[in-house]
């Protein structure tokens, strides 16, 4: 089962297994590559490369804005995957997972999608609007290429948790709270018992996501699960530094601002 790079990286990591999400193309391709490298420098273990979509059902306003900026900059699923070899050339070694809604995958063709991930040096996919009932073929296509398809469990999953955990590969993404992506100051108390339940059922590492934005949240999950996924909080930093990221003179200090935020989460 752990023949894949994602699971190896997840199993090797000490708490917190840290999985950042960045939106490809926000604000431009070059910055996406720079950010990926900074995140690895800061200690990230696995990268989620977000593909912008016109109708992101699971995302809050922050990632919606990020996706529209990225689409505006001309980003697409194909172009995003082509950024992976550029990242690799510049020294990125951690596994990369393409995070995309299902419709762009359907248009590209499921088989071609996984071929493209493989050819470009990616390691797997995460499709948030594809529940496990619909993902049998996707799991198979990923597996045949030594890639992973990441499964999600939600607080409302109830007795679905066991079935979801049984199919999980790489790591299991635990949606910490109801609702869409975005930053939250704290989790509802029942989140911890839910995440613990997922952890008990899972044979792969478990990472919690949705709303994680500060070091104390990361700390509070130690001993509950193996790590965290952080997206909106990072893209919020990007949004705050949009102009500086696009200004050659200020770019490097803007990238360092993102990096030091991420470092503070990891070292919490």
């Amino acid at each position: 089962m752990s023949g894949n790079n994602v699971q190896k990286a997840a199993e090797r990591a000490h708490y917190p297994l840290f999985i950042p999400f960045i939106m490809a193309g926000d604000p431009d391709q070059e910055t996406t590559v720079d950010l990926a490298l900074k995140l690895e420098e800061a200690g990230a273990h696995i990268l989620e490369l977000g593909i912008p979509y016109s109708d992101p059902l699971a995302d809050g306003p922050l990632l919606q804005r990020s996706a529209s900026r990225a689409l505006q900059s001309g980003m697409s699923l194909r172009r995003a995957l082509e950024l992976i070899p550029v990242m690799r050339e510049r020294g990125l070694t951690i596994p990369v997972i393409a995070f995309t809604y299902y419709n762009p995958v359907l248009q590209m063709g499921e088989q071609h999608f996984f071929d493209q991930i493989k050819e470009n040096g990616g390691d797997g996919a995460l499709i948030p609007d594809l529940p496990y009932e619909e993902s049998r073929d996707i799991h198979r296509l990923a597996g045949e290429r030594g890639l992973v398809n990441i499964s999600l469990a939600a607080p409302t999953s109830g007795n679905r948790i066991e079935k979801i955990a049984a199919e999980a590969e790489g790591f299991l993404y635990c949606v910490s709270s109801l609702g869409v992506t975005g930053t939250r100051d704290n989790f509802p108390p029942e989140a911890y018992s839910f995440i613990e339940k997922v952890k008990r059922n899972s044979s792969v590492p478990v990472a919690a996501g949705f709303g994680i934005s500060n070091p104390s949240q990361v700390k509070s999950l130690e001993g509950v699960c193996d790590g965290v996924i952080v997206g909106s909080a990072i893209m919020k930093k990007v949004e705050e530094n949009l102009e500086r990221l696009q200004n050659p003179e200020e770019k490097s200090s803007a990238l360092d601002a993102v990096k030091s935020f991420v470092s503070s989460l990891i070292s919490s």
Binding site: L57, A58, Y102, P128, D129, L130, P131, Y132, E133, E134, L152, A153, A154, P155, T156, S157, G158, R160, I164, V175, L178, G179
Partner: peptide
């Protein structure tokens, strides 16, 4: 047809 929604909604 089918159900192509985030896991959070499957239970609902």
């Amino acid at each position: 047809g089918g159900k192509f929604v985030p896991e959070t909604l499957m239970y609902a």
